[in-house]
């Protein structure tokens, strides 16, 4: 009796788990499948298959120009966020000073402030100082600020394990502060830097919230442009663009899984 109860309980948990796991992949699978439709409207399952919407996506000027904007913004903002993250992590891991708590609070504050607030607040400032047309610059600034907490956290946790005594030993043997950092500390925190950079890059490349506020006419990101196409065009081209984004993400995901491990994403 107890055994039957146990088994039916386990069965129920399994059934529910499988249902919700399917729920998690459903929109991704449906987007991929429906993008190969041969018709001019979107249904699932499609009435016939073709790659015409992929051709249309590759021929669309907006796809390419916004894609390159997104790449440039993600690369530049990740690079700056990594530099800021290393500096901030070093401050927090090695120094005790008055206002250290305040420093930590300031650098992690973009995690507390909702994205729409960061986006609108930065837009408000750019209008006040009349730089609202410098879309690319504004987007890079916004993305850098919201991704720095991610790079800080992963670099900081990799510094917590590194030995101060090694650095001190190097310095007592005549190494300068810089060479001690580059030769001793830096190699130890590389995994943290890589992990932080991966998170920052994915966040920046996918972001819509901040980008929707800061995108100017000539500088729009791919997700923002895709959003306006989904909103106004009932045409399957966005399905093909979405599918391409899924496929590229999957390749990136497998690369990370093979090299760094999926824990990078689990700890955010």
């Amino acid at each position: 009796m107890g055994d039957l109860f146990l088994r039916s309980g386990r069965g129920l948990v399994t059934a529910m788990a499988i249902f919700w796991l399917i729920f998690l992949v459903a929109p991704i699978v449906v987007t991929l499948a429906s993008s190969f439709t041969s018709s001019t409207y979107l249904t699932f399952p499609p009435p016939g298959y073709s790659v015409r919407w992929y051709v249309s996506a590759f021929e669309s000027e907006w796809v390419w120009s916004t894609f390159w904007n997104s790449v440039v913004i993600a690369v530049v903002s990740t690079a700056i966020a990594v530099a800021l993250g290393i500096a901030a992590a070093r401050v927090l891991a090695r120094h005790r000073f008055h206002g250290r708590g305040l420093f930590e609070y300031a650098v992690l504050s973009p995690l507390i402030i909702p994205g729409v607030v960061v986006g609108f607040a930065l837009l408000n400032v750019s209008v006040l100082i009349e730089t609202q047309d410098a879309g690319l610059l504004n987007l890079i600034i916004g993305h850098t600020m919201v991704t720095t907490p991610f790079t800080l956290r992963s670099v900081w946790s990799s510094m917590a394990g590194s030995e101060i005594s090694l650095e001190e030993a190097a310095q007592s043997l005549g190494a300068t502060r810089w060479s001690a950092f580059w030769l001793i500390v830096f190699p130890l925190i590389v995994p943290g830097i890589v992990a932080g950079a991966i998170i920052a890059f994915t966040f920046s490349f996918n972001d819509v919230t901040i980008s929707a506020f800061l995108s100017a006419r000539e500088a729009r990101t791919l997700p923002v442009e895709l959003m306006s196409h989904i909103e106004y065009l009932p045409d399957p081209t966005p399905a093909a663009v979405s599918s391409l984004m899924i496929i590229v993400t999957l390749a990136f995901f497998l690369l990370v899984e093979r090299t760094v491990g999926l824990d990078v994403f689990a700890d955010r």
Binding site: P27, V208, S242, F265
Partner: peptide, 14 residues
């Protein structure tokens, strides 16, 4: 974890 990496726009589109 995979859906995490996909833009909210793409997921909403699905």
């Amino acid at each position: 974890i995979f859906p995490f990496l996909i833009s909210a726009v793409v997921r909403a589109f699905g």
